[in-house]
């Protein structure tokens, strides 16, 4: 498992933190730059639902308000074990998507 800094070389997009009005556009661009098949993992309560920031005026809420999410990893902060668990789940989803794409 390699930690990629470039969305164009990535398979799994790991997102931490909530979506707000400033980063929504960037988030969308990064999502579009990741080549198919791809899987998006939201790490932490903030990324899942907005967490403690959910009623801030600039915060839109969870990342799923902007881009589709495949795996939610809850927790504040999410434990390393649960992040690994989420990524393994994402890998299974990635394999499923690849089979779907081939069919």
């Amino acid at each position: 498992m390699l930690h990629m800094g470039n969305p164009k070389h990535a398979d799994i997009l790991l997102i931490t933190g909530p979506a707000n009005r400033r980063n929504a556009r960037v988030l969308k661009t990064l999502y579009e730059q990741t080549p198919e098949p791809k899987v998006v993992v939201a790490v932490g309560t903030c990324a899942c639902t907005g967490g403690i920031f959910h009623n801030c005026p600039n915060v839109l809420g969870g990342v799923d308000k902007v881009i589709p999410i495949d795996v939610y990893v809850p927790g504040c902060a999410a434990r390393p074990e649960s992040i690994i668990d989420g990524v393994v789940l994402a890998l299974q989803k990635l394999a499923e998507k690849r089979v779907e794409e081939e069919a």
Binding site: L2, H3, M4, G5, N6, K8, H9, P35
Partner: peptide, 19 residues
Amino acid sequence: HAHQEIVRGVFTEFSGFSL
């Protein structure tokens, strides 16, 4: 070794089959 630093430099714009 530092994928994030210059985002793979020359390879930044290549993906998928080209890569």
